[in-house]
Amino acid sequence: MSCGCGTNTKDGKAIVDRLRQKGKADLKLNTPYPIKCSCEEELVMETFVTVCPNCKMTYAITPCSQGDINNIKSAGINY
């Protein structure tokens, strides 16, 4: 699929790679999500790919799955 939804939705790195390839990483989510990073920092995920300002952990969600906060996946630090 063109939005990144055809990737393995359990693999955060694959989601980030697909979104960046399609130029959708910086597009806004329909609904921003408050999330708690693995470093305990609280941040608001506003785009499909978001990086924690504290530890640089990268989070991603596909456009097709953005309706559920549980679909947010981590991709690694500085990814």
Rank of each mutant, 00 (worst) to 15 (best):
C64A: 15
Y79W: 05
R20V: 08
I69Y: 01
V51S: 02
V44G: 05
A75Q: 03
E41P: 06
G4W: 01
T47P: 09
T7D: 10
Y59M: 09
N8I: 09
G23I: 11
T31D: 10
A14F: 10
G4V: 01
M45L: 13
N8K: 12
N30E: 15
V44H: 00
P32G: 07
I77D: 00
Y79I: 09
C5Q: 14
G76M: 09
N30C: 12
E41F: 11
P63Y: 04
I61W: 02
N8D: 15
V44I: 11
T62R: 00
G12V: 02
T47R: 15
G76V: 03
C37L: 04
S38K: 15
D68P: 00
E40Q: 14
I69F: 08
K13S: 03
K56P: 07
K36Q: 15
C55A: 11
K56N: 13
I72Y: 04
N30V: 11
R20D: 03
E40R: 12
T58C: 13
G76K: 07
K28L: 08
A25C: 04
M45P: 10
G12L: 04
Q66C: 08
C64Q: 15
I35Y: 06
N78P: 03
Y33P: 00
Y79V: 10
I15C: 07
I69G: 03
N70Q: 03
K24Q: 09
T58I: 12
S65A: 10
